[in-house]
């Protein structure tokens, strides 16, 4: 049994934020490079830097009769959410916030995406942005319950809601090996809360960028950064939940956590190039009729194994 991580002082929070930021930047660079390669231009890696420069130079704008308070809250909220999620992710022996209901904590935070994305769509007082907001909620109704039950599986197997204990419980066998369904559904959920790849109809081209249709300058930068940060935070949280935490040969535990998170993050970024979007109207039925029963069966299996073992 590996040792359960101990909480470090809050002074380390900037370090955690820095690590999350680094992962998010890496994701953005990779995405830019892949996009550049697909478009046949050389400047792929520089895309993210250029995009940041462009948005920093751009003027903020607002629309007629916008609900600016809610709009700005929504735009900046995703980044805050991502930061709050990583507070409970143990980095080897350390964790910022050793909450004994850490798994539920993350679950409560991922629901905030419903509020923030919808508010960003609503606040602009633009029809396209509002349609984008509705689409996100439609996706939310389909992915949220399967995601919740997917998080149940590792918690049941570890008999704990404490993230560190869940990580420590998979010394022999990583949970991803014997709960693949829960892992896949969890990854879908992460992609969905980051409004990424197959779950990006809320930002669709068909509605002129949907939720982001009216964002410019710093506001757009915050929203986009929030998406990358959420993707990174989701990948980081998968490490203690499914990928054995810091377990691994040679390297220290904290390094393994980062390596695993980076690999999963790269996979999620790459996924976007391979698949078309899942329209909310068709995904709804899949969520309720395929994913939910599948993940419930997974939970049942895990419960039987835990009781039997």
């Amino acid at each position: 049994m590996a040792e359960v991580p101990a909480a470090v002082s809050g002074g380390w929070a900037p370090v955690a934020a820095g690590l999350l930021g680094t992962l998010a930047v890496a994701a953005a660079l990779l995405d830019g490079a892949l996009a550049g390669r697909a478009a046949g231009v050389r400047s792929g890696m520089g895309r993210s830097a250029g995009e940041v420069a462009r948005l920093l130079r751009q003027r903020r704008r607002t629309t007629v009769a916008a609900d600016r308070l809610l709009w700005r809250i929504g735009g900046a909220g995703l980044l805050v959410m991502a930061l709050m999620i990583v507070t409970v992710v143990p980095l080897g022996r350390w964790t910022l916030f050793d909450l004994d209901v850490g798994v539920v904590w993350v679950n409560a935070l991922d629901v905030l995406a419903w509020a923030f994305v919808w508010l960003t769509g609503w606040g602009a007082n633009s029809a396209y942005a509002l349609v984008g907001g509705y689409r996100f909620l439609a996706h939310g109704l389909a992915y949220e319950l399967p995601l919740m039950f997917a998080l149940v599986a590792p918690a049941v197997a570890a008999s704990s809601l404490r993230v560190g204990e869940v990580a420590a419980a998979q010394q022999g066998l990583w949970f991803v090996v014997w709960m693949p369904v829960a892992f896949v559904v969890y990854c879908l959920g992460v992609v969905a809360i980051a409004v990424w790849g197959p779950f990006s109809p809320a930002l669709g081209r068909d509605v002129a960028g949907g939720v982001t249709a009216e964002l410019s300058g710093v506001d757009r930068l915050l929203f986009l950064a929030g998406r990358y940060a959420l993707l990174a935070a989701g990948a980081a949280f998968a490490v203690p939940m499914f990928l054995g935490g810091g377990a691994g040969p040679l390297l220290p535990a904290w390094a393994w956590v980062l390596v695993k998170a980076t690999v999963l993050l790269a996979g999620l970024v790459w996924l976007r190039r391979r698949v078309p979007a899942l329209r909310p109207d068709v995904f709804m039925e899949v969520g309720w009729l395929v994913l939910l029963p599948a993940v419930l069966l997974q939970d049942l299996l895990v419960a039987v194994v835990v009781i039997g073992g």
Partner: peptide
């Protein structure tokens, strides 16, 4: 935590 989780969803 449950109160936060449920109510934010419900209000959305």
């Amino acid at each position: 935590v449950l109160v936060i989780l449920m109510m934010v969803m419900e209000m959305a």
